[in-house]
């Protein structure tokens, strides 16, 4: 899939986020097509997570514009982002310890104006993530991988139009990663647009329709995943040093 296929759901236009003198993100532009899975790759500190934070209004933009389905995100508060249909997961597990798995997921389902449909959304999100059995447990009683799936279930229960996944498989083993990839593809088949930040290049190649490569806050290239990982700039900034021979090219 390329930039032009489908309607862009999200337009990132010349976005910059500076913290004092640090240019965490410095002039990034790309588009996300409706229904696609877009991945952002780049070495640590390349600005991937800052971009996610900017999308959810946790950090202010220094420059540029984020347009989601025709709405200028910069004019919304952080709490309004969710109501416009953007859900996110975090790098670290952020579940509420005193709520059960079901209640944690219900917190996501509460976002929608359709209150009646909330129990149903919770049930289907639990089903999709394979958590139905443990819905009455508390997060502290679950394994790390399961806790991460609760996070994803909570975001899915928001019935979002765009799901931002910030390193959803960090700290997981290979089997768990495959699971998450499968889940993402299933959600994509249901029409959910996803933006994924990950380190695991193999997983990105497996999961994504579109890749965006960043280094030092700037865009190197973006497009077809196979083309992106073959791009010399990407190899130099990221794959060349770290993955070189291993990368499937």
């Amino acid at each position: 899939m390329t930039d032009t296929s489908g309607t862009p759901l999200l337009v990132v236009d010349d976005v910059a986020v500076h913290f004092g003198g640090v240019k965490a993100v410095d002039g990034i532009s790309f588009e996300i097509a409706e229904g696609s899975i877009t991945g952002i790759i780049g070495p640590n500190g390349s600005g991937k997570s800052t971009l996610i934070a900017a999308l959810t209004r946790f950090v202010p933009l220094t420059r540029g514009a984020l347009t989601f389905d025709g709405v200028d995100l910069h004019r919304l508060r952080a709490s309004d982002i969710a109501r416009h249909g953007i859900a996110r997961t975090f790098q670290t597990v952020r579940l509420l310890p005193d709520l059960t798995v079901e209640e944690n997921v219900r917190l996501g389902a509460d976002v929608s104006k359709d209150r009646r449909g909330a129990p149903e959304r919770v049930a289907s999100a639990l089903e999709a993530t394979g958590l139905t059995e443990v819905r009455r447990s508390y997060p502290g009683e679950l394994s790390y991988g399961t806790q991460r799936r609760v996070e994803i279930a909570r975001a899915v229960a928001m019935a979002p139009r765009l799901l931002l996944l910030d390193e959803p498989t960090a700290g997981m083993n290979q089997g768990e990663r495959t699971e998450i990839t499968g889940l993402m593809k299933q959600l994509s088949a249901d029409g959910l647009t996803q933006l994924l930040v990950e380190h695991d290049v193999q997983m990105m190649l497996d999961a994504c329709d579109h890749l965006v490569a960043m280094a030092a806050g700037r865009l190197i290239t973006n497009g077809n995943p196979a083309d992106v990982v073959r791009h010399p700039g990407v190899r130099e900034a990221y794959l060349g040093r770290k993955w070189g021979a291993d990368a499937r090219a």
Partner: peptide, 24 residues
Amino acid sequence: GRAHRRIEAVREDPELAASMGIRV
């Protein structure tokens, strides 16, 4: 119910609460 869940979120993790559409 809903009020309880939202109050828990506001207390334990305001940033998470905001991402859940809650006006902290």
